[in-house]
Amino acid sequence: MEITNDLIEHIAHLARLEFNGEENERIKADLENIISFVDQLQKVDTEGLEPLVYMTEEINVLREDTPAVTVTQEEALKNAPNKDSDYFKIPKVLKG
């Protein structure tokens, strides 16, 4: 199928990725290639087949509503790229 620039832009936005100039051409070509590779699936007869969703037969795998404290505030924030003593921080959109 034909992969348009609009489609790339749309998918990239959904995936929060960005491709510039030459990268865009490359990813477009790659996707075209890969999608036509997976298009082979269209020729398989799957009439009457239920989609396979779960890899075991188990149901009702549930836990009790019992609290536990496993992580401190310090640990929670430890790996944050930007933070203060209490919060994660992310740059604001400057009005515009």
């Binding site: 997976v38 398989v44 799957t46 087949l49 239920e50 989609p51």
Partner: peptide, 18 residues
């Protein structure tokens, strides 16, 4: 994504079942 889910994802799940 919308518009492709059935043709690709659901289809592949069925082939996996096969």
């Amino acid at each position: 994504s919308q518009g492709y889910y059935d043709a690709y994802y659901t289809k592949a799940q069925k082939v996996r079942r096969l």
